[in-house]
Simulated assay, not measured.
Amino acid sequence: MKLLHNDYFQLAVRLIMGGLFLYAGLGKIIAPLDFAASMYNYKLLPDELIGPVAVAIPWIETLAGICLLLGFNTKGGSLAIAGLLTMFIIILIISAVRGLDVDCGCFSGVERTVGFLAIFEDLAMLAGALFLLYFDRVKLTPLAALTGKNKS
């Protein structure tokens, strides 16, 4: 259990989660029509909501990822990511039960289809977000790790 309170472990989880969500968000910001098409394929939202949701989600992912990477407002970033992942997991489960064979639209340039592997991966990321929400003390930032100075 010492690992959960280790500053370097917390920083590593923050950097991995922040990097993943920064990458996911920026990919969708750069190609918003691709993300909107992925959302349309799920057939869960009215057409009128696909555009606004396809614009909002990537910015939330990007900002939350930046927060985690910089060690700024990590609780807010972790909470946003946990909320998004919970929503994504529910959507993946519904789509898997419905037998949809569509690209999840999660990461640009990565083939990831709806199914139990995607659900498991999102559950693992949710565990990371919840870990940060409950255990991360942000005593170590990337800059502090490089310079050897801990955050006070």
Rank of each mutant, 00 (worst) to 15 (best):
L4I: 12
L84S: 01
D101L: 03
G128H: 00
L22M: 11
Q10S: 05
D101R: 03
P32S: 06
I93E: 10
L44K: 02
T147N: 10
P52V: 00
C106A: 06
I29T: 01
L49W: 11
M39V: 09
L45S: 10
K28D: 13
R137S: 07
A12N: 09
L140R: 01
D34S: 11
K2Y: 13
K139Q: 14
D101G: 00
A56D: 08
N6I: 04
L69M: 08
G27H: 09
G76P: 08
C67V: 06
N41M: 13
R98C: 08
V97F: 13
L11S: 01
L130P: 05
V110M: 08
K75T: 12
R137M: 11
T62I: 05
A54E: 15
L100A: 10
P58I: 04
I66Q: 06
Y8E: 08
L92Q: 15
V102S: 07
A37V: 11
A129Q: 00
L70H: 11
E61R: 04
H5R: 15
G51M: 10
G76T: 02
N150S: 10
I91T: 15
G77P: 07
E111W: 07
F88H: 15
M1K: 05
I91H: 09
T74G: 05
G128V: 01
T141W: 05
S95T: 04
C106T: 08
